[in-house]
Write a protein that binds this DNA or RNA. Structure first.
Lengths: 312, 312
DNA sequence: CTCATTTATGCTCAAATTGAGCATTACTGG
DNA sequence: CCAGTAATGCTCAATTTGAGCATAAATGAG
């Protein structure tokens, strides 16, 4: 039963390439922001990760700091388009870098990821975008029977922190999938899924195929990752103030942090050291500049530890 | 640059199927314990996960509770063996089930996973298997220069909890990879990697190809998972005592837990409820039987929470 | 020059969580 | 009745976490 010859498929690599600029989390897109960059797996690549790294670097002209596999899926729908070649397998990667001023090729551009997921940004006000609470209720009410209605209501409450529950910033994918099922994102309409609110809200900017889902997966992974592994430094310039660092983490998490506690955590972790320089004042008292400590980073990147960068 | 037609490859699914029986963590193997079960991705599978689920269920004759994607990799070495078909992509899955007394087909059998990773079991005595400490020192000393020797020493210390560091049970993959690089596992010898200890220790039972690495990935993932999502219940019978539950968690973690604290945690989480029945005494005072609470499980499986099942 | 404003930074405190251990209870087998 | 083995109930100190007060060091308006 095992030992069968595997069937033939085609493979492509899709990248969620993230940077943080001026407190905004950005993702590299192509085709006017409607697609994630993707490239074919080609025979000369030594590994999947090497393949992703090489073609993203060629396209963006700067090195990727961190690359991590996200998810692999096979899309049956694409069969037809591939001329009987069998199915297409997509292998997605999360990559981190510093946004460079360099020119991007073709229609590539950096976009604020909250353009695609406006409901994920809770940095000012924890309120959900206007149509959401009502639309979620409508979806729950549209369940076929009492049990389904209850289950939907509970699911919405967990995913969106309703009914006194607290918002869990890591449930990015669950929220997107719920909105998709509820017909509240444009991709759902495209795929023929009904919506129970009129006019049907189309939350956030859509993407082609399932790229927005992949992006959601990447955001979720990154939000989880920063709580137990020091990956933010891949997104920071060489020198930065503690507030810069905090703003970056907040941008990713979509939530504000307690300043003093954040500072305490960073110091405890010994992730950074003073450079001796002072930042040119932006507003008030000048801040010390810091840099990451290479030795500690290496160790932590390998084994992880306690929360390297804080919770809400 | 993107939008290229992906290249043609072949795809196989590999499963790390785990059960816990009588306090032993077990993994399903084929070919006298030298391989993980694997099957081809075939066109009728609706998705990769469905494919894995269906052929594992067909082989083992019982349903999988939980299936999760582990990792996808492309092995360049296998090119030759596939007759110019392009490379082979392997997509691995972690699956949980209860070991059934049913007969397995062919050469399939359940094996204690510590047969493959004896150094991972710290349930009695935290001591590493005899040759390890010395072999690790020898490997570190064999570094080309001072910097490499220091880096190796630190890496070994982190991975194996030496020099006063504490053992981190989640670093299963890092440890296996270090042992591979150090030539201390049979697969390394097979692949022509040198060892600096004579006679060269060949720790644990080897597997074909990189299946042991995949198993290490699965163990690591599962050990991490049980700390933030209640997946153990997939491995438990319908009714169990709290000690049964603790023994199962300990089997997976490879570490003993504080009994009272474990109990406190389980109760806090409200994951279980009494059945009203009492276990036939095995040793001392009879224990109450518990079962998992379906409602809570569903919620926790979706969103996770604090540690559902304890730390060391 | 003084003051309101803004951000940096140092410290404190109570609540919650975690790690470890003591004591008691309820069975089983000589 | 006694020793052995588990189950269970509680306590306690050390940490960790969440929130806030207070002060310092700049800037710009008047």
């Amino acid at each position: 039963m095992p030992e069968n010859r595997p069937s033939s498929v085609s493979a492509e690599l899709i990248a969620v390439l993230v940077a943080v600029t001026a407190g905004a989390p950005r993702v590299l897109t192509i085709a006017q922001g409607t697609s994630l960059p993707s490239g074919p797996l080609s025979p000369e690549h030594r590994s999947l990760q090497a393949g992703t790294r090489s073609w993203v670097e060629r396209q963006t002209h700067h090195p990727l700091g961190y690359v991590e596999q996200l998810y692999t899926f096979a899309d049956n729908d694409r069969n037809a388009a591939l001329g009987g070649f069998g199915r297409a397998i997509s292998i997605s990667y999360l990559a981190l870098t510093r946004e460079q001023p360099k020119t991007l090729e073709g229609g590539a551009s950096w976009r604020d990821w909250y353009d695609y997921f406006p409901w994920e940004d809770h940095r000012e006000g924890a309120d959900l975008p206007a149509p959401l609470p009502g639309a979620l209720r409508a979806w729950a009410q549209a369940g076929a029977n009492t049990a389904e209605r209850r289950a939907r209501k509970q699911r919405a409450a967990i995913a969106f922190g309703l009914e006194g529950r607290r918002w869990n910033e890591e449930l990015v994918l669950q929220r997107y999938e719920l909105l998709y099922e509820a017909g509240l994102v444009a991709e759902a309409a495209r795929d023929g899924i009904a919506c129970h609110t009129t006019p049907a809200p189309r939350l956030g900017q859509p993407m082609r195929q399932d790229h927005r889902r992949i992006l959601a997966t990447g955001i979720a992974r990154l939000r989880a990752k920063i709580t137990y592994r020091p990956v933010v430094f891949e997104l920071m310039p060489p020198n930065f103030t503690l507030l810069d660092l905090q703003r970056s983490v907040e941008a990713l998490a979509g939530q504000l942090l307690h300043k003093q506690n954040f500072r305490r955590l960073v110091e405890q972790q010994e992730l950074v050291e003073e450079t001796g320089q002072i930042a040119e004042a932006t507003g008030g008292r000048p801040a010390k500049l810091f840099r990451f400590r290479a030795d500690i980073l290496q160790e932590r990147a390998y084994a992880g530890t306690k929360p390297p960068l804080a919770r809400a």
